[in-house]
Design a protein around this nucleic acid. Structure first.
Length: 404
DNA sequence: TCTGGGGTCCTAGGACCC
DNA sequence: TCTGGGGTCCTAGGACCC
């Protein structure tokens, strides 16, 4: 089974404040683009990623709200708990989607599968006042096709013997895991619908496509590749912080300062989860949306920006060129290891690390209490100043900054 | 669509080793 | 050295997802 919240963020906003029901609602004010919208807003022609200022101008009647991620998380957890009344084998796929394995539960529950889906959908509606669409099939890829079949509020079962009848009506680009690039590629090979792919033989598929797509092909043919995985995800493989700024710039100090801010943010999150990065990647994105990146191995895993920043600064010229104009910077911490640091270093950098660790314990507490940015690296200062419209260099003096 | 932010997984090719 | 064959590790980047 795959459950998908209908216009989830907007639905939660309406559940929180029912006077919004029936109105076009858009969430994403704080990001400057529409990240979710109600069906009424969709009917006006609003699409994902549409800039908020344009929505404001073109559709003044639209209610524009900032995202309230704490509420979304609460609703999400409640939704999953309702599903868990029927099976423990539930995989939380994203904030508004989950997979659950109902195999065999029809007998003990003394209900048909369809009845179970209906019950789940009703309980979510009654208790949370939000609508979901549900799909049921032999594999995750097919269950996703099913849940998308009729939105909002749909329930769709795809038994194995009817799979091809659904796939023949499904354009290949609608399949989970097949994006724009692969669709274009497959179209050129004569594959237009999901059915066209499903009926190819394995030799053809392995010759033409790589591993993830071979798995999709199997799942389209009811061969289960990806099991429902109920393990709660409690850690990260990587932590990324990025920021787009306006206007775009070629100024290396400005860019380094943005990277410094990215790094501080990423390290702060890593410390929160007791994770340390063994590698760190930085990237610059140009006006033309071209990425330039590089990756660096650290001598010892760290989550201390003061330790990592000098290393990053040394690598910065690898990605920077003064004749390019950049709009976004980003930092990714990877190869994260969890737990306390223990390893004694040969050259005693860990002593320095430990000192900063003590400082950061205090700084993290201050940030917790007073908000992001109350204490930050001097190297990040330019990036913070950038946020204030019309700021000038003399603002530094007004801010009465303390330097560590 | 002039396009935000946070993730995951996979592959090609180079460096290096025996 | 004008070089065979097999393997691992690392990095950049592609593609996709929500």
């Amino acid at each position: 089974m795959h459950i998908d919240g209908d216009a989830f963020f907007a639905s939660v906003e309406i559940a929180k404040n029912p006077s919004l029901r029936g109105k076009p609602v858009v969430v994403g004010k704080e990001r400057g683009i529409a990240s979710a919208f109600s069906y009424e807003a969709k009917a006006l022609g609003i699409t994902r990623g549409l800039p908020i200022y344009q929505i404001h101008k073109r559709f003044p009647q639209v209610v524009i709200l900032p995202g309230d991620y704490i509420s979304y998380t609460t609703y999400s957890e409640k939704m999953f708990d309702i599903v868990r009344r029927y099976t423990d084998n539930l995989e939380e796929y994203s904030i508004d989607e989950c997979f659950a394995d109902l195999t065999g539960w029809d007998k003990p529950l003394k209900m048909s599968y369809e009845k179970i889906l209906l019950r789940i959908q009703n309980e979510i509606k009654e208790e949370l006042d939000i609508s979901v669409s549900i799909g049921l099939a032999s594999t995750k890829v097919l269950a996703k096709v099913a849940s998308k079949w009729r939105k909002p509020g749909g329930i769709t079962l795809i038994p194995d013997n009817l799979v091809y009848e659904f796939l023949i009506k499904t354009p290949i680009e609608k399949i989970w895991g097949i994006g724009r690039r692969t669709s274009v590629y497959l179209n050129k090979k004569g594959i237009i619908t999901a059915y066209d792919l499903a009926i190819k033989d394995e030799a053809w598929v392995t010759h033409i496509l790589s591993k993830p797509y071979i798995e999709i092909w199997k799942e389209l043919n009811c061969i289960l590749v990806s099991k429902v995985d109920p393990r709660k995800k409690d850690t990260y493989a990587s932590i990324q912080k990025t920021r787009t700024f306006y206007p775009p710039t070629s100024n290396p100090e400005m860019l380094m300062s943005q990277i410094s801010k990215n790094l501080e943010g990423a390290c702060s999150k890593a410390r929160h989860y007791s994770l340390r990065a063994s590698r760190v990647a930085i990237f610059l994105k140009t006006q033309e949306f071209r990425y330039y990146s590089c990756e660096i191995s650290l001598l010892a895993p760290s989550n201390i920006p003061e330790i990592i920043l000098p290393i990053v600064r040394k690598e910065f010229p690898k990605v920077f060129r003064s004749d390019r104009v950049y709009r976004t910077t980003g930092v990714t911490l990877r190869d994260l290891v969890s737990g306390e640091m223990r390893q004694e270093s040969l050259f005693g950098e860990d002593k320095k690390d430990k000192k900063f660790e003590i400082i950061h314990k205090e700084v993290d507490a201050l940030v917790e209490k007073f908000g992001v940015g109350v204490v930050h690296l001097a190297s990040t200062n330019k990036a913070f100043r950038k946020q204030t419209r019309g700021a000038t260099d003399t603002d530094d003096l007004d801010r009465n900054l303390l330097f560590l």
